[in-house]
Amino acid sequence: MILVELRKMVRSRRTWTTILLIDALPTLVAVLLAITDLGPRPGQGPAFLSAVLTDGTLFPLAALAIVLPLFLPIAVAITAGEAIAGESQAGTLRYMLIRPVGRTRLLVAKLVSVMSFVVLTVLVVAATAYVVGTLLLGKGDVTTGSTSISGTSLSTQELLLRTLLALAYAMLCMLGVAAIALFLSTVSESPLGAALGTLAVLIASTILLTLDAANALQPWLPTRYWLAFVDLFRDPILWRDVVRGVLLQLVYVVVFLAAGWANFTTKDITD
């Protein structure tokens, strides 16, 4: 079943359109930076963007910081919101279930498919950003490596390792989004409803994070530790928020998958 879902994902034109759209923004940013040579003022703009001007190899990180807060969650919410509600709306859900495909198995297959989409998107964004970054913005000195946020130097291997960790962390954050959207997809009749519901949760979370009165709630908000991947580039690495972020996302994944499972496996399919 997982293979079938992957095949459907890869063969869908929408998958590639979405990836292309997500990829377009950081590429545009790189082109603009290369032409104008104007970085954001220090302390403003997405992380790493100011450092990119001197070292294009850092651009994958800047690209990640650009797409992570908004573009990627929207794409994930739409894709995962589509998962069950979309099949239900197209009428294909009932034919899957009477093949028969177990409902739990279907849910897992959908999650794997959404996650593969995320991995694919993140890798495509990182790869194009690396190519675009080194072509347009130039390479830093490869032999000396790069500078960590704390002002120490990082070897190229270390930078690569930390970048991979950051990518993995971003993917995990998106897994949390996918779990929420998947749950809503089993509840809502319409895929758009599920996607918008997920975005509403994320926007509410972002707003509550800026509110001091919501202090007690903040450690539990899904977007609380999203930007903690920046901590991976401090020296020594600040694991505190990253670890909490990982645990929190796992909690979201487990809870919402369980809720999705409880709802979907006992639901009357009446589309």
């Binding site: 009932r94 279930l97 009477i98 028969p100 009357d268 399919i269 009446t270």
Partner: peptide, 9 residues
């Protein structure tokens, strides 16, 4: 029909 096929409980 849906009950026969396990779609509706």
């Amino acid at each position: 029909v849906r009950m026969l096929l396990g779609l509706v409980l």
